[in-house]
């Protein structure tokens, strides 16, 4: 549990600090590296890294939206054939969850494979 929490905090910091400077797939590798060292177990890593990544992305979109008060999410939702722009926020969060979750999962699995060898 402690490790999951730690992972959550680290992934979140990673996304917030490194996010603006690198594309999401580099972050994915970053999450794998963090998970590699924290070793929280497969399921806990998937959930924790996923939730952290996803919630941070969701928080960012909400922050941008409140700060700018822009109609863009609405316009983009309509362009992508969605009835409700809330789905775009949700979609970004879910996407973040998948990116973070799988990134983390790969990290712990690599660690487990290496551990077994020694």
């Amino acid at each position: 549990m402690r490790k999951s929490l730690l992972l959550f905090v680290f992934v979140s910091i990673l996304v917030l600090v490194a996010g603006p400077y690198m594309p999401y797939w580099v972050l994915m590798i970053g999450v794998a590296v963090v998970s590699f060292f924290i070793e929280a177990g497969k399921m806990p890593t998937f959930i924790s890294a996923g939730l952290s990544f996803g919630l941070t992305w969701l928080a960012l979109t909400v922050y941008i939206s409140i700060r700018t008060n822009s109609v863009l999410p609405k316009r983009m939702a309509e362009l992508m054939g969605l009835d409700n722009d809330n789905l775009l926020f949700l979609g970004t969060g879910i996407l973040g969850f998948l990116i973070g979750g799988f990134g983390g999962l790969v990290g712990t699995m690599v660690k487990k494979l290496l551990d077994r060898k020694y």
Partner: peptide, 8 residues
């Protein structure tokens, strides 16, 4: 959709 680089 990436909040840091995408349309957001």
């Amino acid at each position: 959709l990436d909040p840091n680089h995408g349309f957001w």
